[in-house]
């Protein structure tokens, strides 16, 4: 087996990340209580669903039109939770999709959430909708859905592109409480401008751990934090050394 040149550092990082990940999964599974700081965007989910229940309006959930990636997977954790809550509170949830494969996975998640909530008959297949994989057609259809079905909450979590601005502002105009979040950092400013709560970048990827507190997801968050501490250390040490003419960290990262 031969490694591609310049990837040794990345391999070591991945190994360390994996070890830390399993270490904390094990600790959480054994009952050690691990803490995660408060994230307002997730706390707002119950408020949003509760508001819809009071007003008798549906919740709208979208992943945006981006391709199937880690953003979508993180968003699945939130969708599972939100659809379960909607099932328990007898509130409709409309999910609009732009990808065929995400549509199928979404059907599985929502149906399963209704079954787990003890209300399999309340699941409405027509509310899990494939709209369009064409970005602008998707946008125009959502504008229509907002005007005609008037969701009380608009939850936008996933890999968004330019549709982020229009969806968020259209939701704002119908008075929906809005939570937006994406790991595509370039789209975050638009959510900041138009949403009540925004999950910035990495905050979206903490969804499963924050909402579900499952050991493997909490373990992943701790491994992520390990990566950040390591990065901080590399940056501080690397820049100080580079200033004094020593390129140790730079050379180390090239290996």
């Amino acid at each position: 087996m031969q490694l591609v040149a310049g990837t040794l550092g990345k391999v070591w990082f991945l190994i360390a990340f994996t070890v830390i990940f399993w270490f904390f999964v094990d600790r959480t599974a054994k009952g050690h209580k691990l803490v995660i700081r408060r994230i307002a965007g997730f706390d707002a989910l119950d408020e949003a669903i509760g508001r819809c229940t009071e007003m008798g309006r549906p919740v709208h959930y979208t992943f945006g039109v981006g391709e199937l990636d880690a953003n979508v997977l993180a968003s699945f954790d939130v969708l599972g939770y939100v659809s379960g809550q909607c099932a328990r509170m007898d509130t409709d949830i409309i999910i609009t999709n732009a990808l065929g494969e995400v549509q199928m996975m979404t059907e599985e998640i929502v149906r399963s959430a209704y079954v787990h909530a003890g209300k399999p008959d309340a699941y409405k297949a027509d509310n899990v909708r494939f709209v369009s994989s064409v970005q602008t057609a998707y946008m125009s259809a959502i504008l229509g859905i907002f005007q005609r079905e008037r969701p009380g909450a608009n939850l936008m979590l996933g890999p968004f592109f330019a549709e982020s601005m229009m969806l968020a502002e259209a939701g704002q105009q119908i008075g929906a409480i809005q939570v937006g979040g994406t790991g595509r950092t370039i789209q975050v400013p638009f959510f900041i401008a138009a949403c009540d709560y925004t999950l910035i970048g990495d905050e979206l990827f903490v969804a499963g751990a924050y909402i579900g507190r499952k050991p493997l997801q909490v373990g992943a968050v701790y491994a992520q934090d390990f990566g950040k501490w390591l990065t901080l250390l590399l940056i501080v040490a690397g820049t100080i050394l580079a200033t004094s003419g020593n390129n140790f960290v730079t050379d180390l990262m090239k290996k």
């Binding site: 995660i36 700081r37 992520q224 934090d225 950040k228 940056i235 820049t239 100080i240 580079a242 730079t250």
Partner: peptide, 29 residues
């Protein structure tokens, strides 16, 4: 980032901002 030399105000500002922003994304504490 690690190749930046802390010999100009702009570079120091840059590195400090990267560090502070990254610190915002620490969750496990």
């Amino acid at each position: 980032t690690v190749t930046m030399k802390l010999n100009t105000t702009n570079n120091i500002v840059y590195v400090v901002i990267v560090v502070c922003t990254l610190a915002y994304f620490l969750f496990a504490f």
